[in-house]
Amino acid sequence: MALGKVYPSPEEALADVFDGATILVGGAVGAGLPENLLRALSNGGARGLTLVYSAGAGSISSTAGNSSGKSSIESLVMEGRVSRIISPMPFPPNAGGQIEDSWRQGEIQIEILPQGVLAERLRAGGAGLGGVFLPTALGTRFQEGRERREIDGKSYLLETPLKADFALLKARAADTFGSLVYQGSGRNWGPVMAMAARIGVAEVGRICEPGGLDPEAVVTPGIFVNRLVECP
């Protein structure tokens, strides 16, 4: 049986991204950022997207971001393709740039949330949980509207699960079953975002046959990954 997980190009792997889709973007400040898939998203033309990312907006180094000096996420916002951002660090580190401008002009909505809250909301979404109680953000403005619960003498806030239509990921290698191994701190959001999306798409440096990866070293099992593109 052909699994058909391997796609010939990033564009073909994302051909069915639709207007209004919610898309998780892996990576953080350049590490693990799926640049090829983001470029394909830009080429694809879908609009009204909700992007969920950790800290992908900044082009902090010469190797992150594209030749325009803007990160791929900033470029998507400038192209008017994004309607909403959910992120703990929506802006580049020192200046808000285009994303802040678009937000001030009311062109996009931004939901800012603590990084660890995003992580647990995605895990809850991916693991089929109804929510998770976190100690994070107690006493801050982020507790507004959230159920507070005392558990074993400590206070927690209820966070709801977060799920998405697509996850765009980057990994070092995959087998054709979709199992992934990552590269260094580029692993970051890959494992949890793969779980939380209906369709996990990974750009990988190398695709091998089953057996080509050490099963003890696999980080994301192929059950969470639906599509692969080799981007050496």
Partner: peptide
């Protein structure tokens, strides 16, 4: 009026 939170709230809490 807006800013990056990052991991600071989790670090402060945990």
């Amino acid at each position: 009026g807006v800013g990056n939170i990052g991991g600071a709230m989790d670090l402060a809490a945990g």
